[in-house]
Design a protein around this nucleic acid. Structure first.
Lengths: 215, 215
DNA sequence: CGGTACATTTACAGATCAGTAAAGTTTACA
DNA sequence: TGTAAACTTTACTGATCTGTAAATGTACCG
């Protein structure tokens, strides 16, 4: 069976299926997009299928034709969010950053933009792992996978930066990023992206300085 | 209005006032303690009052005599968790740490102990703020207050440490701590407490070094 | 002993939960 | 235009949700 859940794969479907009524995309894709918004805004347990019927305009029977369970719909929404977020983040890190070091720092500028959005609602994957805490739960697994993918991306850039211990550096930068997200959601203190960026600068400078020059 | 929910305050209330409110602190306290465990393990929305009846052995009617709503019970459980956790953390930070710098680093050792507990279940307040995302929601507000209290404690120690910018240092250490918690819950990477501690060491050393000695 | 305060059990209300069945309507396309 | 797939409405299941009512049990206390 073809995996048509993954949004990136949808463009390979015949155009004919997307035609008619202002090039309106597949109902299924639209459902996932709208469900994502509702889950993101309201939480997973707090969002019932009846609410999704109202908010998405898709009938309940149609939903269950596309997804056998609510869990499958949540997983599809998380996949879409993962793709959207990582595409956005990676693009923001590349734009106008010519060195690996600048790319790493650009991550914190991107976080700052994200936090400043009026509709900022925190990290959907942290929320997912909080609501589905069992490490074996598919939702928890998928949320963790999102963090792992970002972590690996940062690691590659850290390797290219010339740091003596790129693994340790990237691990530390990930901790800073996640901490900034959490404190930003809870509105504790000031500009968490700026705080994390200052720390990141210190850690990166240190990682790029030869050992024999360090105190 | 007297705050009679806060467990530590109960002993200061005259018995007569407890009688008038139809409250026996022992039963009530026991209910909160058991409810805390269930909420912590299962989540808030996923835990129904009927489940609490089974898990705590307290009848539903009795619960609603003590707490008018589920939300009030959750708030009481969060207050208890806040007291328990901060007492534990602050004690761990003082034990065998003779300097402010050692106390700050001891926080990450404490986090390491916490993460290693077989029944480690993440931060209850991050989970609460994730399930009740509305910043005006009393549960969200109380969860944020917990982080703010810890943040203030760290800030005081940073001030005593002699760092040039103790506010910035403590903000950065808080970011590291929260990030370590999140990544630890999601099981991304290795020992997040150790990673955060290494970053903390670098940041603290830097903050304690006079500017004219820095590169 | 009798009264009061609190606890209990049992049952229920009304809403909402995830998920399904049946049958009618729209759409795509040959 | 015929046909099949996709989509719809309507109604339903049985479980579970928060919260309440009523009757009963029980421990303390004058």
């Amino acid at each position: 069976m073809v995996n048509i859940d993954f949004p990136g794969a949808l463009i390979y479907l015949p155009i004919s299926s997307l035609r008619k009524r202002n090039m309106r995309p597949n109902k299924r894709d639209e459902l996932v997009r709208k469900a994502l918004k509702v889950f993101y805004r309201n939480g997973f347990h707090a969002t019932g299928m009846d609410k999704l019927v109202v908010e998405t305009g898709v009938s309940k029977t149609s939903m269950y034709k596309h997804f056998r369970t609510k869990e499958e719909l949540i997983l599809a929404a998380l996949r879409l969010r993962d793709e959207n977020f990582r595409n956005w983040l990676y693009r923001r890190m590349e734009e106008g950053a010519d060195t690996p070091k600048a790319q790493l720092l650009a991550m914190f500028d991107a976080l700052g933009e994200w936090f400043s959005e009026p509709e900022f609602q925190g990290c959907m994957f942290i929320k997912a792992s909080a609501e589905y805490q069992n490490p074996k739960d598919p939702i928890h697994v998928q949320a963790a996978e999102h963090k792992r993918l970002i972590s690996e991306h940062i690691r590659e850039i850290a390797r290219a930066s010339g740091a003596h211990d790129p693994e340790d550096l990237s691990d530390q930068l990930m901790v800073l990023a996640e901490g900034a997200i959490v404190l930003s959601v809870m509105n504790v203190g000031g500009d968490q992206a700026a705080i994390a960026k200052r720390a990141a600068i210190a850690l990166i400078e240190r990682a790029l300085t030869p050992h024999d020059l360090q105190g």
